[in-house]
Design a protein around this nucleic acid. Structure first.
Length: 260
DNA sequence: AAAATCAGCAACCGCAACAAA
DNA sequence: CTTTGTTGCGGTTGCTGATTT
């Protein structure tokens, strides 16, 4: 009997006003989190439940950190995105006070290759294709020397990954594979670190991109999870830092100084 | 100085999982 | 067991202010 009212309901959309925020805060104070679909009935807000939930979770919820991500937080995001791919909400659980949306936006603006449908991109794809063989070679060499990562391994954290790996590897093997790893990661790094491929690698880690050039095969990504360790990713994060974040910051500082 | 382009961010959408009826 | 409603997730859009041309 009440159903008809919802059908004609025109939900407000777009940015939230302070008044709307107050109404939502008041609603949560009275009724607690959840039951979002009844917000409109109780509070007079002309917002859909979805919209209300989003606003609360991403902006109004207490304990949210505002402002720029710290270098530590950035490091965690890089590590975990490398491990899990675009699992924003999972990553967000390791960053108290940060939202999945925030992390998603951060990664998108920092890692994702800009898609300019220009010759530039064609060239890029050609490069990737040309190097595929090199990847395969590195791949095969690694896989022949290293115990494979298993899909059913319950690897939740970096430490888990290290534990599983060392559990399965004798110290001889470990030494052997570590020296190999050093060589091959170095050559792999040479390939990837060239213009833009690193960004693309970070972004694609752990995701399915069936239509893209076969840059990151499942085997290589497994290799990274199973074989790589904290140290590797730390190096990667540092390299990333020095390559982008630090230089970006310096650029910004330089630009803001220029204006004075 | 104006127009075009870009970057950052908040919010929207569709989908899927789950729950309630 | 099917239908209907709710919530959460990830991809994407669109607005706004800054930067570039």
């Amino acid at each position: 009997m009440m159903g008809w009212r919802m059908q004609d309901q025109e939900w407000r959309k777009g940015p939230w006003t302070p008044a709307e925020d107050d109404l939502l805060i008041e609603y949560v104070r009275m009724h607690g989190e959840g039951r979002w679909s009844s917000v409109a009935d109780c509070s007079g807000l002309k917002r859909s439940g979805k919209s209300c939930r989003l606003r609360w979770v991403n902006y109004l919820r207490p304990g949210l950190k505002k402002g720029q991500l710290t270098p530590q937080e950035e490091g965690i995001i890089i590590e975990l995105h490398g491990l899990w791919g675009n699992k924003w909400s999972t990553i967000a659980r390791y960053l108290p006070g940060r939202t999945d949306n925030e992390i998603k936006n951060y990664c998108r603006t920092n890692f994702k290759k800009k898609t300019t449908p220009s010759q530039n991109q064609k060239q890029q794809k050609l490069k990737v294709a040309l190097r595929r063989d090199q990847y395969q070679q590195v791949n095969e060499m690694m896989n022949s020397n290293v115990l494979p990562y298993r899909d059913d391994d319950n690897i939740g954290t970096m430490d888990d990954a290290i534990a599983v790996k060392s559990e399965r590897t004798t110290s001889d093997q470990q030494q052997h594979s570590q020296s190999l790893m050093a060589q091959d990661v170095a050559s792999w790094w040479d390939i990837v670190s060239e213009d833009g491929l690193w960004d693309e690698f970070l972004w694609n880690q752990g995701n399915d991109h069936p239509n893209q050039p076969v840059m990151m095969e499942q085997s290589l990504s497994s290799f990274l999870v199973g074989l790589s360790s904290k140290q590797y990713l730390r190096n990667a994060a540092e390299a990333y830092d020095s390559k982008h974040i630090i230089s970006d910051s310096l650029d910004k500082i330089a630009k803001s100084n220029k204006g004075k």
